[in-house]
Simulated scan of single mutants.
Amino acid sequence: MQKGGLVYIVCSPDKNVLYTGVTSDLEGRIWKHKSKFYENSFTAKYNCVMLVWYKYFDHIEEAIAEEKRIKAGSRKKKEALITGFNYEWRDLWDDIKDIRTY
């Protein structure tokens, strides 16, 4: 049985730094970003703790391909993606924190 996956974007509170990632457990991964679980990671260093965009895929391979496509794009394209999904760039943590993706 294949497991689905999610692509997500987190940002710093001042919205100056964006990070795109992929996971099969969005709640767990965002909790790790927020708690700075990996203290030497890019997201901990640049305080990327706000979930501002995510998209689910039925297959993790699709999510990985989309993550690569987004990462290769410009910041302007990432901003448009976020704004189209979350106009106010609010932290979506409260929306997903009690949802398991498996």
Rank of each mutant, 00 (worst) to 15 (best):
A72L: 10
T20D: 04
K78R: 10
E66H: 08
I30K: 03
K3S: 00
D91L: 04
C11G: 02
L81H: 04
G4C: 07
G28L: 01
S74L: 12
S35G: 04
P13L: 02
L51S: 12
I9H: 08
A65N: 13
S24T: 14
T23N: 01
L92N: 04
K55G: 02
V10P: 00
S35H: 10
N47C: 12
K77H: 08
K97W: 09
L18K: 09
L81Q: 01
V22I: 10
I64F: 06
N40W: 02
E66W: 10
E88T: 03
T20K: 05
K68N: 09
Y8V: 12
M1H: 10
C48N: 04
K71D: 03
V10Y: 07
E67V: 05
F57L: 01
K76Q: 15
G5Q: 02
D14L: 04
G21Y: 07
D58H: 06
K34R: 15
K3R: 07
N16E: 13
D94N: 15
G28C: 05
F57W: 01
C11R: 13
V49Q: 13
I70W: 12
D58G: 09
D95N: 11
C48V: 11
R69Y: 09
V52Y: 11
D98Y: 10
K15I: 02
Y102A: 14
I96V: 13
L92H: 04
K36M: 14
K15Y: 15
G5Y: 06
V52H: 14
G73H: 03
A44C: 10
T20F: 00
E62M: 09
P13H: 14
T83S: 10
D58E: 15
I99G: 13
I96S: 07
Y38W: 12
Q2I: 11
S12L: 08
G21A: 08
R75V: 14
Y19E: 01
K77Q: 12
D14A: 05
T20L: 01
R29K: 10
G84V: 03
I60T: 00
G5K: 01
K34Q: 13
D25V: 01
F85E: 00
C48M: 08
K32F: 04
D98N: 15
I96C: 06
T101F: 15
Y38F: 15
K78W: 13
S41H: 07
A65S: 14
R75D: 05
G4F: 06
K15C: 07
D94I: 14
Y19F: 04
I82F: 07
D25K: 07
A63I: 05
K76P: 00
E39W: 11
S41F: 05
E88R: 08
M1D: 06
S74M: 06
G4E: 14
K32D: 15
W93S: 08
D91Q: 03
Y8L: 11
D94Q: 13
T43W: 05
Q2F: 08
A63G: 09
C11P: 05
